[in-house]
Simulated scan of single mutants.
Amino acid sequence: MSKLNNLPDMNDTIVISQEQQQSYRRDGHAMIRGLMRQDEVSSYRNLISDIVREHNYHTKPLHERDTYGKAFIQVGNLWKLNPIAEKFVLARRFAKVAADLMGVSGVRIYHDQALFKEPGGGHTPWHQDQIYWPLNTNHTITLWMPLVPVPAEVGSMRFVSGTHHNGYISKQEISDESHKTFKDYIEGKGLEQIDYGALDAGDATFHSGWTLHSAPGNPTANMREVMTIIYVADGTIISEPDSNARKNDLAQWLPGLRPGDIAASPLNPLVYP
């Protein structure tokens, strides 16, 4: 318990600029540099890495996996696995930025995910996150934060500006097929792609659930260690799942709830205000 109490709680708040808010609402993505200080990241990084190693479900070597399996090691709801991870995920500082970017008064956790891209790991195909989420709102946002420095050749995710205004573009789940479909869509319309380049540990990108995005592979010898937290506006209603992916998400991340209910199960705590 003393170790938990000695960790920085990040329950202070920061003010983001009107320009950052307007840019996010226009483009569907934003960069917030230094959302965590280096000493704060150092306090949490090893613990989060230990959880990911413990819960890594991959049993095949990298070269024997499919495209999705090569993209990353994925572990969800770390905040329910360890009280130190809980302190990280429920940080008020992060949640207020998410609320301010979306322009809403309060946000709940939808779920968190560690996304660790192994050395030699493959690209993350183009996709939209919200095809998985049975949520009747456009007010969803994902924080994506590296716990280690990320060089330019790995970089941030790549975002397609303005695509969050279009809602569903394709219902394809993340795959080789989604990558081709969305690549043709982006190139056919000549849409702007933004990559924020090299990141320090503690920098964070935010993107809307509908924003088209992808990520390059990891050609380096180091693990790309990233934590993500998905937020949804407080008061959001659960929609009728229209795909198996959304049915699975309803059962996994909104347990005990039904379409028409407010997205507020015990797994979806209010983190701001």
Rank of each mutant, 00 (worst) to 15 (best):
T228C: 06
G256C: 05
Q130I: 08
Y272D: 05
T13P: 01
D261A: 09
N136W: 08
W253K: 02
D200R: 01
I14K: 07
S156E: 04
S161V: 11
N166Q: 15
M10C: 15
A198K: 00
D12I: 12
R45N: 06
D176Q: 11
Q38D: 13
N56Q: 08
P134W: 02
P146H: 00
D184N: 15
S243H: 07
D39P: 04
T124H: 14
L250F: 04
F182A: 04
P259K: 10
I237H: 05
Y272N: 03
M157A: 13
Q128T: 11
N5W: 07
P255T: 05
D27T: 10
K60V: 04
E86Q: 14
K96A: 07
D129Y: 02
G28F: 01
N218T: 07
H29I: 06
D27E: 14
I230Y: 02
F72K: 06
R25I: 09
M1K: 06
R224K: 12
L212I: 06
R53A: 14
E177F: 05
R158H: 09
R26P: 01
P151A: 09
G197Q: 05
E86A: 14
E54A: 10
M36V: 10
W133H: 14
T228K: 01
P149E: 03
S214P: 04
A198P: 00
G190V: 11
A85I: 02
W133Q: 13
W210C: 09
T124R: 02
M1D: 13
R108I: 05
D184H: 12
N5M: 12
R25N: 11
I174W: 03
L191Y: 12
L135G: 01
Y57A: 15
A233L: 04
M10Y: 05
Q113W: 00
Q18I: 10
L115F: 12
K180E: 14
V150Q: 00
M227D: 02
G167F: 10
L143D: 00
V15K: 13
S170N: 08
A91E: 04
Y132P: 03
L147T: 05
E86I: 02
A71L: 09
Q21E: 11
G235I: 09
Q20R: 03
Y185I: 02
H29S: 12
